[in-house]
Amino acid sequence: MGYVFDIGSVLTGKYLDWFLIGLATTLALTAVAWCLAMAMGIILTLVRMIPFPPLGWFVALYVEYHRNVPLLVQIFVWYFGVPSLLPRPARQWINAHHGEFLLAAIALGLAAAAYVAEDIRSGIRSIPKAQYESARSIGFGYLGAMGYVVLPQALRIAVPPLINQTLLLFKNTSLAMAIGVGELTYRTREVESYTFKTFEAFAVATALYLAISFGIMALGSWSGQRLRLETR
């Protein structure tokens, strides 16, 4: 076909800048959404521990909604839907302040929180009841037994799945391109449409995504080995 592969053609000047800005935006989006996911995931876990059934139902509904609706649709609800419910000044503020980044981060973070809450819960469930009883027998109250004995063990078990959630979150930031967030996939398409170097542009993006994903995967398997405890 006479096509000459020339990776250099997209790695110079403003195109290189676009890739770097895109990568930085992807990482920033991952970081902001990650913090939100952890905070909300922990809150959901704590709320679920309160022995008042309606709160438990609320958390269950939250988890099921976020796990059974496509992430892209959740992003659309936040980006197109929620601002339309807000008063006009709030909408203007959002439009003026790169609202798409903020709303994408909220959508991604809240969705990931549902999975984080589930991971922490299965971590807690996997700790034998005897560990809790044993802590109570020494004289610890509910909070002491949870805080010093159950949670430290549960978190060790939850870390590898949480790192896997981080990987999924990182990959899912690519969906933000659909609402115009200038992250890596979005910038790649820009480079592609300016240079017509389709293959090169996507090769660069693929390499960048893979490099970071492999890093997260390596961290996951390292932590899995590092944190495992002999329990019997």
């Binding site: 990987l167 990959k171 899912n172 930031t173 690519s174 969906l175 391109m177 996939t185 790649t188 398409r189 996507f202 993006a205 693929t206 995504y209 893979l210 994903s213 492999f214 995967m217």
Partner: peptide
């Protein structure tokens, strides 16, 4: 596992 689905689509 390391790539977003959207990359495959493109």
């Amino acid at each position: 596992r390391g790539l977003p689905l959207i990359m495959f689509i493109f």
